[in-house]
Amino acid sequence: MEKTTERNISISGSGTASGGDYHQVKVNGSAHINGDIQCETFKCNGSSHIEGNITTKTAKINGSAHIEGNMDAAEMTINGSTDIDGDLHCKELKVQGSSSVKGDLKGEEIIIRGSASIKGNVSGDEVDVKGQVKISGDCEAESFNARGNFKINGLLNAGNIDVELLRLCEAKEIGGENIVVKKNTDSSGFKKLIKFFIGQQTDQLTADVIEGDHMYLEYTHAKIVRGSTIEIGPGCVIDRIEYKQSLELDENAKVGAQEKI
C-alpha cells in the first residue's frame, strides 16, 4: 500500500490513539490504541493495550503489551511480556520474556528463551526452546530443538527433534525422521539453583507414542516406540517397541515387549 503522508504515533506518558496506517508507532509510557494498526515499526517500552490487529514489519516489546486481535510481523522481539488474543504470524520471533498466544503461532524461525504458552497450534521451520513452552495443540517444524521444559498436548512433528530434558517434559505423540532425547548433563550452578528452588524433580520425557526413522532415547516413558533404527538409553520405561532394522537396549532400560517387523 502506498502511503501519501507518513504519520507517526509517539506516546510518552499516557495516551490514547486510534488505529490506522502509520510509519512508526512508539510507546514510552502507557498507551491504549483503539482499532487496527498498520505500520513499519512498532515499539513499546512501557505498556500498551491494543483493541485490534497489528500488521507491522518489525515489532519490539520491552515492556508489556496486550493485543486483542491478531499480530502479523516480519520480525518480532519480546523482551517483556506480551499477550495476544488472536493468532501470531511472524517470520522471525524471539521471546526473551514471557508471552501467551490464544490462537495459532506461525513463523519461520521461532526462538524462545523465556517462557511461552500457545493455546493453538505452532508451525515453523525452526523451533528453538531454551526455557519453557506450553502448546495446547500440535507443534510442526523442520527442526525442533529444546534445552528446557516443554509440554505439548498434541503431536510434535518435526524432521529433526533434538531434546535435552529439563524436569518433566511431555508430548502426546512424537513423530519425525531423527529423534534424539538426552538428559541434561550440564551440572552448572544455574541448574543446581533451579533445582534448589523448584525441588528435585527428575528429568523425564513422557509420551504416548513415539515414531521415527532413527532415534536415541534416554529417560523416556512411552507406551509405544516405533521406528527403523532405535537405540534405547538409560532410564527409559517403554511398554512396547516395534523396529525395522536394529534395536539396542541399555541395561538400565525397562522394556515390556519388543518386536521386529
Partner: peptide, 20 residues
C-alpha cells in the same frame, strides 16, 4: 499406519514430513 508403511514402502519419517 503400520500396514500402510509396508504396503507403500515408506518410512515414518517420510509420512510425518508429508503431513507437515
Amino acid at each position: 499406519k503400520k500396514d500402510l508403511l509396508e504396503a507403500a514402502d515408506i518410512s515414518y519419517g517420510q509420512l510425518y514430513r508429508w503431513k507437515r
